[in-house]
C-alpha cells in the first residue's frame, strides 16, 4: 500500500451570504471538517447532491481557493501560497476537468492551440517539439490530429470533453480533479469517456478525485468512495462494498433512489422532505430531519466520522461498529 499522494486534513470553508438585499450577512458552511486521503494511482469518488460541498472540496484540494481551516498536502508537502513560483510548479502537476467542456474552451481558437497553451505557459519541452506533443495528446484521447484544427463549436460534446482532457494531460500531471466530467454527455458517449479515463489512468498512473452525483459512474471508476451531505462526509469506504452494503441511512436512501433497469421500485426508500439548505443547517446530525431512523440524540449531537469495521467509516449515532446490522433487525 503506497503513501497517499493527496492528503486533506479537516478542511472547512464558509461563505458570507445575505438574506435579501438588506438582510443580515450569515455564514454558509459549504465544507465543514472534511478529511480525505487519495493514494497514488487510485481514484477517490466524491458523491452527494447539490449543495453537499463536493465541488468546493474539489476546488480547495486543487488550491483554487484556500480553506478557512485545515490543510491540503500534495506529495507530502503543504500547498504553496497561490501566485508563487512554487505554487505554479505544483499546479502543473494537478489539473481539473469540469462538467461543461464548451464553457472550459475558447470558442474562437482552434482546439490544438488550446491544448498547446499549458505547454507554453509552463515552458514544457522545446518550442519546436510542442506541435508533436499536441498531436500525441490528441491521439492519447482517441482523436486525430485533424481534429486539432477545428473550433470547439465544430466538435460534438464527447469530442470537446476529450479536448479538455488532452489539455489537462499536457503538463503530465499526477493528479486530476474531475468535477462531473460526464454528466452533460449522452449515456453512450459517457461510456466512451469513462473508458478513456480508466485507460489513461492505467497508462499514466494518474491519481483522480472524481466528483459526481451519479453513483453508477462513480462506482465504475473509483477505488474508494466518500459520500457527502451538507458539507460533511457521512460515509467512506471501498467502492464495491459501500454500494453493496451502505451503512449510513443517507447512503442507503441514495443507493435505493438510483433506478435500475429490470427492477421495479418496490422497497425503495423515499426520503421525506426537501433537499438540504446549506444556509439553514439543522442542529445535530444534518440529516436527522429526513432520516427514517432518527432518535433524540441525533437532533442535538453531531456524529463524528468513525471506523465501523473493515475500511468503512460512518458518521451516524446508530451505526457504531461491525454489529450495526442489529439496527435493521430491531
Amino acid at each position: 500500500m503506497s503513501a497517499p499522494l493527496v492528503e486533506v486534513s479537516s478542511i472547512s470553508r464558509s461563505y458570507g451570504m445575505r438574506a435579501g438585499m438588506f438582510g443580515r450577512s450569515m455564514a454558509v458552511h459549504a465544507v465543514d471538517g472534511v478529511s480525505l486521503a487519495i493514494r497514488k494511482g487510485e481514484t477517490l469518488g466524491l458523491v452527494g447532491e447539490s449543495g453537499s460541498g463536493k465541488s468546493t472540496t474539489g476546488r480547495i484540494v486543487l488550491g483554487l481557493e484556500p480553506p478557512d481551516r485545515g490543510e491540503v498536502r500534495f506529495g507530502g508537502k503543504p500547498m504553496a501560497m497561490p501566485g508563487t513560483p512554487a505554487w505554479r510548479a505544483q499546479r502543473a502537476q494537478m489539473q481539473m476537468i469540469f462538467q461543461d467542456p464548451l464553457g472550459a474552451l475558447d470558442r474562437r481558437l482552434p482546439v490544438a492551440t488550446q491544448i498547446r497553451e499549458p505547454l507554453d505557459i509552463h515552458g514544457l519541452g522545446e518550442p519546436a517539439g510542442r506541435e508533436e506533443r499536441v498531436r500525441e495528446l490528441l491521439r492519447a484521447v482517441e482523436l486525430t490530429p485533424a481534429h486539432g484544427g477545428r473550433y470547439p463549436g465544430a466538435l460534438s460534446g464527447g469530442q470537446r470533453q476529450r479536448i479538455v482532457l488532452a489539455r489537462a494531460l499536457a503538463t503530465k500531471p499526477d493528479f486530476l480533479v474531475c468535477d462531473e466530467p460526464v454528466s452533460a454527455l449522452d449515456v453512450s458517449i459517457q461510456a466512451q469517456v469513462v473508458n478513456l479515463l480508466a485507460d489513461l489512468q492505467a497508462q499514466l498512473g494518474l491519481t483522480l478525485l472524481f466528483i459526481s452525483h451519479d453513483l453508477r459512474v462513480v462506482r465504475q471508476i473509483s477505488n474508494v468512495v466518500a459520500v457527502m451531505y451538507l458539507g460533511r462526509i457521512v460515509e467512506l469506504g471501498s467502492a464495491d462494498d459501500l454500494f453493496a452494503r451502505p451503512e449510513h441511512p443517507y447512503t442507503q436512501a441514495l443507493v435505493s433512489a438510483s433506478p435500475a433497469p429490470g427492477r421495479r421500485s418496490a422497497g425503495r426508500i423515499v426520503l421525506a422532505g426537501d433537499p438540504p439548505n446549506p444556509a439553514a443547517r439543522p442542529q445535530g446530525c444534518a440529516f436527522h430531519p429526513r432520516c427514517p431512523h432518527a432518535i433524540a440524540r441525533c437532533g442535538s449531537e453531531v456524529p463524528a466520522l468513525s471506523a465501523v469495521g473493515g475500511d468503512r467509516q460512518v458518521a451516524c449515532h446508530l451505526v457504531t461498529g461491525p454489529q450495526a446490522e442489529t439496527r435493521d433487525a430491531a
Binding site: 460534438s156 464527447g158 469530442q159 449522452d186 449515456v187 453512450s188 458517449i189 459517457q190 461510456a191 466512451q192 469513462v194 473508458n195 480508466a198 453513483l215 453508477r216 459512474v217 462506482r219 465504475q220 464495491d240 454500494f243 453493496a244 443507493v255 438510483s258 435500475a260 433497469p261
Partner: peptide
C-alpha cells in the same frame, strides 16, 4: 443493446463499459 451496455452496473462485478463507438 448498446445503451444498456453503456450503463455502469451498481452491483455485481465491475466490467469495462461496452460503449457505442462514434456519435449520433
Amino acid at each position: 443493446q448498446g445503451l444498456i451496455g453503456s450503463l455502469p452496473p451498481l452491483d455485481g462485478p465491475r466490467r469495462r463499459l461496452t460503449a457505442i463507438p462514434g456519435t449520433v
